[in-house]
Design a binder for these strands. Structure first.
Lengths: 195, 195
DNA sequence: TTAAAAATATGATGACCATCATATAATCAA
DNA sequence: TTGATTATATGATGGTCATCATATTTTTAA
């Protein structure tokens, strides 16, 4: 176990704050002074940790991916221990009411929260985005016990992300919950033999 | 045919410019002075046409939806006249290489270009977003000759939007085209009997 | 043609932003 | 403890932004 230095701890704290902000407010709303303030620091100190705002953006996206993956791992372990099949558990967690709603708190999957901005990113941050997408596809494949091809895993991933995004876009119209539930149940049925 | 007044024509030109910018650069990148400049006007005149930036945002999203729907209508008519089934034609157009790439020109489906930002919108613009989503679902249902339920149409819509977004996010990694093609062909096969 | 009305332009205001040079405070090695 | 190093804070700079009051130009109607 490597102990973190003071600087590393501060670095982590900035990242954690930024990872929350980009998911809640979007990439463009990440303001250096704001991040530092929310991390309990002053804005000038920022450049001791990151070469510029862009560097923070890339690291924050990566951090959000790791944070989200870790939470997923825990939730999955819980459900699987209750006897739920891995892929079914994943679909149910991903399209849960909780995941539908926690975007306003800067939690949840960063891909669903940000993917329509991916094509606009600078090269460095876009590489991180691509890594997250690939990791996502591999996870789905792994949860299917390798019964899904890469392409099929991509398709399921697309469906999950798209459904969550559209349901979030419909929140307030009383259709959101209906569509989300229908999608969840349909997908669970459709993929129940693939695990 | 109602002739447009000078003011109405200018209004349309501003909207057209804004509709392009939000799809290419995102909601947050829409700057009033920039829109006006690109529309060949000076920024001060803006407030004779819109009460504020937010009002433009809402109208621009609506305009982008109409523009995209009109283009789709034309492309669909063309393909259907060539004997392609409606839903197949739609899937092939939506997941085409052209649609993958035209995001950088501010063209194409505004939902795919912007949907991860929908949950962050103000009430007025979010209502427009919800309208676009619903219209999308209805279109898919109509193209399926009503053989798809609303929920199933939502699921297909989610898959299409998600696939396009993820493929755009992977552009440059040489996986983009592979996944897009695989998704297109898989979906065409899967929905070939539904029209 | 001319006065009224409508459309657009000029220029200013105050707010926010990324970045950085420099100063202070905290930590660490001796 | 003390000097050196590292981490954080202060405050400034130059840029961008939305908004608006006012001025000018263009259109319309008589």
């Amino acid at each position: 176990m490597t102990a973190l230095s003071k600087k590393e701890m501060t670095h982590q704290r900035i990242l954690q704050t930024a990872a929350k902000i980009i998911r809640r407010d979007g990439f463009d709303s990440l303001a250096v002074a704001d991040v530092m303030k929310q991390a309990g620091l002053t804005h000038g100190g920022f450049y001791a940790h990151f070469s510029n705002r862009g560097a923070l953006l890339a690291e924050a996206l990566d951090y959000a991916g790791a944070e989200s993956a870790e939470l997923l791992r825990q939730n999955l372990a819980q459900r699987i221990s209750e006897g739920v099949q891995p892929l079914t558990a994943f679909i149910e967690i991903y399209l849960s009411d909780e995941h539908l709603n926690n975007c306003t708190e800067g939690a949840g999957c960063p891909v669903a929260a940000l993917s329509s901005d991916f094509f606009r990113l600078d090269t460095t941050t876009k590489a991180v985005a691509a890594k997250l997408i690939e990791a996502y596809i591999e996870k789905v494949q792994w949860l299917s016990n390798q019964t899904l091809s890469r392409e099929s895993a991509f398709l399921l991933t697309s469906t999950l992300i798209g459904s969550l995004q559209l349901a979030r876009g419909l929140k307030g119209t009383d259709q959101a919950s209906f569509y989300l539930t229908a999608s969840r149940e349909d997908l669970v049925r459709r993929y129940s033999d693939r695990q």
